[in-house]
Design a protein around this nucleic acid. Structure first.
Length: 575
DNA sequence: ACTGCGACTTAGTAAGGGATAT
DNA sequence: ATATCCCTTACTAAGTCGCAGT
């Protein structure tokens, strides 16, 4: 259907560039030209009046050791510089950068005094904040020049924005949660570490003077322009296109088409895994329960991770015994599973879920003779699970369930919560609530903003002030009515007062809606689902049906990312 | 089957900066 | 004009998943 529609638009020459013909199998582009990565500035040595002290004595550090000392000094306000793991990792890596003499002198981090360096850093930040308008303008222009030069590439006749064209600067690795590698030195990347990917016949980017690239390759089956290997985990980093590019847009569209395909097959697939719950085969039974969780709770697949390399987090397949508690009875429900584990980014997943009897019974079976630390699904991993899923439907993997359930939830919630007759503000609140339902399903949390209480109080103060104003306006209106009656009809003053009351009421409503929305959103992050899980066509169609301008739902960046959806979606679109 | 790796998506946080209130 | 607030953007870590090699 999509293909047919595309073909017709191409014939009519109405197509946009994301509707052009696709290349064969695996080929991502025919021509790619770019300027290479932008490197962070060289380290600037400390001025002569800023010192580092060891054991109370001034010590002039070598350039390499000094740079790393500055990384630490800059972070001194952060709580994690007090953490044992962070400090040990940092000190170990710092010592590697020292000269022999420095290493033999500096043996104890507690005897290091970074105070002056820290103060210098704070002063610098402060100075940057207090720059004059002209200085800020000049800085902005300089940055723009860098973007103009490095921020774009040429890909198959189209100029495309690059997502991240800067090499990541060196610093101390933090990681999320209790990361075993926190505090380690993330090293400066040299051109000699960098691989360039571009067309043979393009202008090959020049390495910085006196340097050379690790490699220049011409691989058109991948989408990255630049890559390097990072030293903390040894994983690859890439420079890729911006989300508004044709390549990314098509991929995104494809993702939602697969999720819609799942919609048409999901009844069968659910029937199948409910059947599998009765299987005598342990693998099959575990697979069925895992799928039940992934489908019902939108859990992530849960790949296995190397112990000691990363923080201890899990997903569905890697759940361990200690992550669930079974309750025959809880809060008036039967067969309740209590989940408590750290998921991606060490975000806690806590949920008490009533499940069907067969699932509950299976879980009891899986837990038999196991200790905390043992895997709940000992016969299962993501590879087995995904292989099974792809046999049920081409392109089906665990994460498709998240996309599908997120999008279908948004669509249902929008249908349920919005009324085309209501006020624009009420519609927007409904939209946010539908979005919020998805964020809760996907467990997208955020730390409550530091200023949350204050900003709620401010808003409440505004509401109170507005209420008072409204009361006053109402009194004045009454007065005006009285006057109008005694003096006779047509009184422009009466009209003015009526308008004032109405304006007040609207502004009050707006504030109250804002307060509700903000309160409900305290610990919930809407952005992640909006950007990655919700088929934008649902939102575009909703806007059309509800006569809500798309700008109210998507900001500029989001509209660029979802240009394909905004362009093609009619009001009757159904996910 | 198992493992490691490469490529790509998904994720939360902090800095930046523009809009709004004072 | 300045301060405050809050949204946007930049950043980069941390997932997913397929593939190749053993």
């Amino acid at each position: 259907k999509v293909m047919e529609w595309l073909r017709q638009r191409r014939q009519r020459r109405e197509h946009k560039r994301w509707e052009e013909e696709k290349y064969e199998d695996g080929v991502k582009w025919k021509f790619l030209e770019h300027k290479g990565p932008y490197f962070p500035p060289e380290y600037q040595p400390l001025p002569d009046n800023v010192h580092f002290y060891y054991n109370g004595k001034k010590v002039k550090l070598s350039l390499a050791a000094e740079e790393v000392a500055v990384f630490f000094a800059q972070m001194l306000d952060h709580e994690y510089t007090t953490k044992k793991v962070f400090r040990e990792n940092f000190f170990k890596d710092w010592r590697k950068e020292m000269t022999h003499e420095e290493r033999s002198l500096i043996q104890d981090l507690d005897k290091c005094d970074f105070g002056e360096i820290h103060a210098m850093h704070k002063a610098k930040t402060e100075a940057r904040k207090n720059m004059s308008k002209e200085e800020k303008q000049a800085l902005k222009e300089a940055n723009q020049k860098i973007v103009d030069e490095y921020g774009y590439c040429l890909l198959d006749h189209h100029k495309e924005r690059i997502g991240n064209f800067k090499i990541e600067p060196p610093g101390l690795f933090r990681g999320r949660g209790e990361h075993p590698k926190q505090g380690m030195l993330k090293k400066r990347i040299q051109p000699e570490d960098v691989i360039i990917n571009c067309s043979k016949e393009s202008r090959i980017p020049a390495p910085p003077a006196g340097h050379h690239w690790k490699e220049v390759r011409h691989d058109n089956t991948v989408t990255w322009l630049v890559s390097w290997t990072e030293n903390i985990q040894g994983s690859n980093k890439y420079i890729m296109l911006n989300a508004n590019s044709k390549l990314k847009g098509e991929k995104d569209w494809e993702k939602y088409e697969v999720a819609r395909k799942l919609k048409s097959r999901v009844d069968d697939i659910r029937y199948q895994y409910l059947q599998d719950l009765k299987s005598k085969q342990m693998v099959t039974r575990q697979r069925a329960v895992a799928l039940y969780f992934i489908d019902k709770l939108a859990l992530r697949a849960g790949n296995e991770k190397e112990e000691g390399e990363t923080a201890d987090t899990v997903g569905c397949c890697s759940l361990r015994v200690e992550h669930i508690t079974l309750h025959e009875q809880l809060d008036g429900n039967e067969c309740v599973v209590e989940f408590d584990f750290l998921g991606k980014d060490c975000i806690r997943y806590y949920n008490k879920v009533p499940v069907i009897k067969k699932v509950f019974k299976s879980l009891k079976l899986f837990l038999e003779n196991k200790q905390p630390g043992d895997e709940l699904f000992d016969r299962l991993n993501t590879s087995v699970l995904n292989k099974h899923l792809s046999s049920l439907m081409p392109g089906l993997t665990a994460k498709v369930f998240r996309t599908y359930n997120a999008s279908i939830t948004l669509q249902q919630q929008l249908k349920e919560l919005t009324n085309s007759q209501s006020h624009l503000l009420a519609k927007l609140l409904s939209y946010n609530r539908a979005n919020r339902a998805v964020a809760i399903l996907c467990n997208h949390q955020r730390a409550p903003p530091k200023t949350f209480e204050q900003s709620m109080a401010n808003l409440q103060a505004k509401i109170d002030a507005r209420k008072e104003q409204l009361a006053l306006a109402k009194t004045e209106l009454k007065q005006a009515k009285k006057e109008a009656k005694t003096k006779g009809s047509s009184d422009p003053k009466l009209q003015r007062k009526k308008a004032a009351v109405k304006r007040c009421e609207e502004q009050l409503l707006k504030l109250e809606v804002q307060a509700t929305d903000r309160e409900e959103n305290k610990q919930i992050a809407l952005g992640t689902s909006k950007l990655n899980y919700l088929d934008p066509r649902i939102s575009v169609a909703w806007c059309k049906n509800m006569e809500v301008p798309i700008e109210k739902i998507y900001n500029k960046t989001q509209r660029e990312k979802f240009a394909w959806a905004i362009d093609m979606t009619e009001a009757d679109f159904e996910f």
